[in-house]
Structure formats: structure tokens, C-alpha cells
Nucleic acid binder design. Structure first.
Lengths: 158, 158
DNA sequence: GTAGACTATATGCCATGGCATCTAAAGTGA
DNA sequence: TCACTTTAGATGCCATGGCATATAGTCTAC
């Protein structure tokens, strides 16, 4: 007999596969709905929502939050700015960066899109899961996320 | 008072945010390691592993499994074929499609990469989570995935 | 057996992200 | 204050995926 008590442990590769497949499908389904109703995709919605909730965030803040490269983030902000949803305000304490904020249109958009997003997400996730099983999953993923962020895991270079 | 008993329920938008952020970071971190050790990325590893475990799968089968468009899948297979890891064998019962299988090199590669993948994944996920919390999450995600697949949620068009 | 519908997938165009690089602006130390 | 290093982010090149389309093979009804 092994000296360790055999503990019920997750099959990590299967867990990862399920994680990625759920993410892909939910993301795609939300994309479809947001695009048809508001002309944006989920990544844009997430940027806008973050800026609504963290006005004055910089490009680097968005990049860190979403674990995307700085370059990609800069381009994403360009696109939102070209649509008139985001404005780059001069940063008085550091002229290299800008403070990002939503325009009036941007705020309108994100508030409307949030309704669509939340509603669609609730449709996508079966009620049967919403109570205990998913609560446990949510707890675990929340902790996992905290650790990954603390250790700066999986940050792209650029 | 409402007639329903108030049940503990997940905050779906937070759950989704955690899900996406965990996926992104784990995927990026695995990419880094697989690229440096084997010259492939996670999506390629997943294609190869699926073909090892389901020899004779067609392009459409891969597309359905991973919820990617057929076109993108076809191009991904092209790349694996150009590297000499996958072969398109004629499908005797339908000349429009091919039966995909790993070459000898492809099999060697996926077996080696699987070690790296599993090892790295175990490093990335804290031991403290591996027992009960993640087991619950794994269970919930597995069920969620099954439902999303059953209902064909989030399949890209092309 | 043949026209028409359907299916599998290959291909082209475009959007997006990674990574490398470039520039401007701060910080730092002598 | 002036070189040197570091930082923020903008930009270019490339790889990849979505979506639309093209093509070839299959199926169906007659």
C-alpha cells in the first residue's frame, strides 16, 4: 500500500478540456447575440464594462485584467475610440499614457449590452446547474483565477 | 415575501468572467511550454491528441469537437499535414472527405507532448484546489459542457 | 439516369491577437 | 543636468479564425 491515503482527485486534462470547451461555446453564443443586438462582440463588451466600472484605467490595466498583450489592447482601444465609445484623456501625471473613459454613447451601449449579456448567459446555463453544482464550480474557479493572477501566469509578451 | 424560497445562486457574470480568465491564462501558459518543448501550441496538441484517440476522424468531426469553424479546421489540418504529423487518407465511402490519421512522427510527438502538457497543467493548478473544490467544479463544467454540446450551442458558421 | 438539392471541405478576404520593435516620457545616479 | 535604464503604449508583420464562397461528390425524386 502507498503511504498516502488515496484522495479523490480531479482528472486535470479532462477538467481543462471541459473548461476550454465551455468557454468557447459560451463565448461564441454570447458573441452572436451581442453582435446582432448591439454590433459588438464579447471582448468589446468586457472592455467597455471594465472601463465603466474602472474609469481612468490605462491600456496596461486592461491588458493585465484580460491577460491580453499590450499591443492588442492598444488596437482594441483604437477600435472602440473610432466608434466613439471610448476617449483617451491625457494623463496629467504621466504623459506616456492616457486615461481611458467611456463616452456618453459608450455608457449607453454598455448598459444596454449588459442586459442582453446577462439575459443570454442565464438562458445558456441550465437552471439545474445554477444552484449547488455551479456554485461550487464558481468558487473553485474564482480561487484558481486569483492564484493565476497573483503569479502572473499566462500573460502574453507584447 | 416572494413565494419561492431564496436559493443560493451563482452570480453568472462573475462566473463567466472567472471562467474566461482561467481559460485564457492556462491556455497561454500551456502554449508557452508546449511551444518551447515541442514547437506546437495547445490547439495543435488537442487536434493531435484527438486524432490519436479517434483515428479516422474527419475534418467535420474535429470542428464539432472543438467548436471551431470547418474552414479553420481544414486550415489547421493543412498545417499539421505540412509538418508531416497528420495524413489525409482517402475515405472509401465518401470521396468528398478524408479520414485523418497521425503519422509515425505525429504519434511520437503527441505522446511526448502529452507528458509536458499533463505535467505543466499539474504545476499550474494549486494542490489545495485539486481535491474537493476542483472536483466539484469539474463535475459542474462537465455537465455544462454536455448540455452545450447537446444543444449545439456556440458553433461557428463556417 | 438525370436535374436539383444537399454535404464535405477547400479557399479567399477580413478582423484580431501575438510578438518584435520603435518612440516618447519617466525615473536614477553620479 | 546629463547619460542610462526602464516604462507605456503605438505600430508593423505574421499567424490564426470567422464567414462567405467555390467545388466536387452524394443523395432523392421522378
Amino acid at each position: 500500500m502507498a503511504s498516502k491515503v488515496s484522495v479523490e482527485t480531479v482528472d486535470l486534462p479532462s477538467f481543462f478540456a471541459d473548461l476550454v470547451r465551455c468557454e468557447t461555446r459560451l463565448y461564441n453564443a454570447l458573441n452572436d447575440r451581442l453582435r446582432e443586438r448591439h454590433g459588438i462582440v464579447t471582448s468589446q463588451f468586457e472592455f467597455l464594462r471594465h472601463l465603466r466600472d474602472h474609469p481612468g484605467a490605462r491600456v496596461a490595466d486592461l491588458a493585465a485584467e484580460f491577460a491580453v498583450g499590450i499591443g492588442a489592447t492598444s488596437k482594441g482601444v483604437d477600435r472602440l475610440e473610432r466608434q466613439g465609445w471610448v476617449a483617451r484623456m491625457p494623463n496629467p501625471s504621466d504623459r506616456r499614457s492616457s486615461l481611458l473613459e467611456l463616452t456618453h454613447d459608450g455608457l449607453q451601449l454598455v448598459d444596454a449590452a449588459e442586459g442582453t449579456f446577462t439575459e443570454r448567459l442565464a438562458e445558456l446555463i441550465p437552471d439545474a446547474l445554477k444552484a449547488s453544482p455551479l456554485t461550487a464550480a464558481a468558487q473553485a474557479l474564482s480561487e484558481l483565477r486569483a492564484v493565476l493572477e497573483r503569479d502572473q501566469i499566462g500573460m502574453p509578451t507584447g
